[in-house]
Amino acid sequence: MRRRIFPLIGLAVFMMLPPLATWIGEPYLVSTFTRIVIFAIAAVTLDLLIGFGGMVSFGHAAFFGLGAYVSGIIAHHAAEQITLFGLPATDQALIIWPLAILVSAAAALVIGFLSLRTSGVHFIMITLAFAQMLYFLFVSMEKYGGDDGLMMLERNPLPGLDMSDDWSFYYLCLGLLAVVLFILGRLINARFGMVLRSIKQSGPRARSLGISSLAYRLTAFCIAGAGAGLAGALMANHNGFVSPALLHWTLSGDILIMVVLGGIGTLYGPVLGAVIFLALEEFLPLAFEGAGLPGFKEHWRVVFGPLLIVIVLFAKSGLYGFLLGKEAADV
């Protein structure tokens, strides 16, 4: 029962956030909320890999950053009116965003195909290595700003929506998060999801049943990559800026933490994880200041690090699992 109600309550809360921010006189908070929603998209797709596919990818930021760069680069070409691969560039979101998703999915196909030859720690490390490779690739791309990154002066326009309005953009991201969650929910409960979980639980047995484990896992990897690509494109639009920092391995770590904070193997958990993580990031420094320790303001991680350890050691099912009790596990 709670399982059905929580997401609806969550949606209602998210809907209410911008007016709430205005009401308490902190309208700039909408920007923070948008970040949360965007990272939530990245986190739920990563959970498809970890929680349902048993693939601990430590390179999810690669697809996130790739999606961001695709929109950044195309918008840059459009703004400077330079052709891209001989085609005129556009700044239309309806063209750029699907492209970002497509490119990220294609990269996930290649990286996943190579990485899935390994398992366990090797899989963790090879996904990290591929992400680092892409990171250094963008650092050395002088044409697109290298380490300094690339500015996007305007958000990609979408017909019928004023993209420069922060509220509109927030609700758009929220809508996309809902769509992603809907699709993932359908997938997980369909045959695809069951096969994926059975492969996770017993790779060899699933194989003996005649299921091509690689095909299923690779498909999941591509879907997750595509979702991260969408999140990346949104982040590029939100920041008005892309830089290699979006592909850095610590960001992969951050997204991983969101998944665990919220609850591995739950559909909605990672959303909650993103909320907690980014809220802590925003408010722990302020808490130090409030506690009369302004000198510790920039050292909030000294609390966050041990907190993370405690959560991993003692609260494995994440906050969502805690809230839902047993119900969380069965999706």
Binding site: R301, V302, K316
Partner: peptide, 24 residues
């Protein structure tokens, strides 16, 4: 006795902690 994911995360937490301790 934990899986690799837990190990990665807990020791990631250790990194954050030690970096800040050194900074302080």
């Amino acid at each position: 006795a934990r899986d690799h994911l837990d190990q990665v995360l807990a020791t990631f937490g250790l990194i954050l902690f030690f970096n800040e301790i050194a900074a302080i």
